[in-house]
């Protein structure tokens, strides 16, 4: 088997991803500091609550812009649901078996599609919009309550989903991190994880 590298992401996509990821981490940490008094020391690290608040707000803006820009990269693909996706889902992506393998997948598997659509798109937008409401439209009690609730709910989703996302893209699937570092993957990796895409890319 020859050693061949396939281009999976563009530099633009990778830059975007890391801006998004970085802003997320900052937001996540300052958010933790605001949410839990016992973790308020985190915000002390960020220079105190006042600075942390500003960082959280402007970081939120970066996150939101980055979020929207990211969408362009996968939205069209994510909403197209194929036969492979169905099978991937029915086999739970093969993650709960050492033997079972889902059928060859396209550039994005169903899990990734769902992650993009549910976590990134719906809750990403929700957390961004509610954040802006709390920032700019905090004149009525009802609005604040609604936005606050939405912001917090989305936060939980992220608190749950993002660690898994990191796990899946690193330890669970060795070689995956390259997608977001170098942008290239080995043909072997492509065949194993995105067989259909690999085929389309000319890997037999």
């Amino acid at each position: 088997m020859e050693k061949r590298l396939l281009q999976k992401t563009t530099a633009w996509e990778r830059c975007n991803h890391w801006i998004l990821a970085l802003s997320f981490i900052v937001l996540f940490l300052t958010g933790l500091g605001f949410l839990y008094q016992s973790l308020n020391w985190i915000n002390t690290v960020f220079g105190g609550n006042h600075l942390a608040k500003e960082i959280h707000r402007w970081g939120g803006l970066v996150f939101a812009i980055s979020l929207i820009l990211t969408m362009g990269n996968y939205f069209a693909e994510a909403v197209s649901f194929t036969e492979e996706d169905k099978k991937w889902l029915s086999s739970l992506g093969g993650y709960f078996s050492r033997t079972e393998e889902p059928p060859p997948q396209g550039r994005l598997n169903a899990g990734q599609k769902l992650f993009y659509l549910v976590v990134v798109l719906i809750f990403g937008l929700a957390i961004s919009l509610s954040g802006f409401m709390l920032w700019f439209f905090n004149t009525s009690r009802g609005l604040i309550l609604f936005a606050h609730f939405l912001h917090n709910l989305s936060y939980i989703v992220f608190a749950f989903a993002v660690p898994l996302h990191i796990y899946l893209s690193t330890a669970a699937n060795p070689g995956t991190l390259r997608v977001m570092t170098r942008g290239t993957v080995s043909a072997a990796w492509a065949k194993k994880h995105h067989g259909k895409w690999a085929r389309d890319m000319g890997v037999d």
Binding site: F96, S97, R98, A171, P174, H193
Partner: peptide
């Protein structure tokens, strides 16, 4: 939220230990 965060981490660890990663079988790249 904390349970979620902790849970996600724990789940990942458990998965790694029990099911294990999806290695690309190419004998090292």
């Amino acid at each position: 939220a904390l349970i979620g965060l902790g849970g996600a981490l724990a789940a990942a660890a458990t998965h790694y230990i029990t099911v294990g990663p999806k290695e690309t079988d190419e004998g090292g790249e």
